[in-house]
Amino acid sequence: MFKQKNYLALGAVILVVLVLLSLPTRVTSRLKLAVGSWFLPLFGLAGAAQQIPADLASSVLPRRELLKQIDTLRTENQQLKSQAIQNAAVLRENNKLHTLLGWQQTQPWKLKLADVVMRDPANWWFTVQIDLGSRDGIRENLPVITESGLIGRISSVSLTRSQVVLIGDPNCRVSATVENGARDNGIVIAADPLDNSRVNLTYLASGANLKPGQNVLTSGLGGIFPKGIPIGQIVDARSVEFGLYTEARVKLNANLGSLEQVWVLFP
């Protein structure tokens, strides 16, 4: 029936699994880094392959179109510069008022641009890999955003890449505030595995006055995400657990299905 080598193979596999699963998290994350480095040549090839169409497109673009784009960018740059000057003045004034009132001064967050290089091969986790790592100053739990809003936080870091756990994954819970009169607080949790454009906002007060279209922002509670980052908008709400609390569905501002470039926030 069963040959001896079959028993040996079965035993060897079970032994390897038991050893790997019983290793501490710190060791397994290092092992993941080591194994991930085997794929570095493939990442290089994929990056070069993605660059070719972009290079081809820019080489065939007519000169008139390029000059037009330069003009638009120049105008936009000037507008942004003047806005930055105004913002700096407001920030100085704000800091001055903070000092006068004896409040702690808030430091502006710095941003670092990263490319999304990979998505989680497993369908039951919402994570992506970005091309910034510990050598770029990335560390765990830094918030990650796009120009539309919050998308998640850094969950693990290697030398050249980091894993971002996206909002909607059970491992990325965010304390959020609804922009209404009562400023109701809740926690953003996972939603449907198929629809990563919506999440659930739960543990809201039972009598919360929620209306579709109200903005949902980070509350700043919990210490990971700074206050005021846009998350999404209320779609609908319902009372759960026999009216104990309210749960709302939130449409995310950021499109998690087509992430290409993201910003990592540094305090």
């Binding site: 390897v16 790997l20 699963l21 993941k32 194994v35 991930g36 794929f39 497993a122 986790w125």
Partner: peptide, 17 residues
């Protein structure tokens, strides 16, 4: 299994069995 778990949030080695 190890390669699949490297890029995933899966615990390392869980895909082997």
């Amino acid at each position: 299994g190890i390669w699949a778990d490297t890029f995933s949030a899966n615990p390392f080695g869980i895909s082997i069995l």
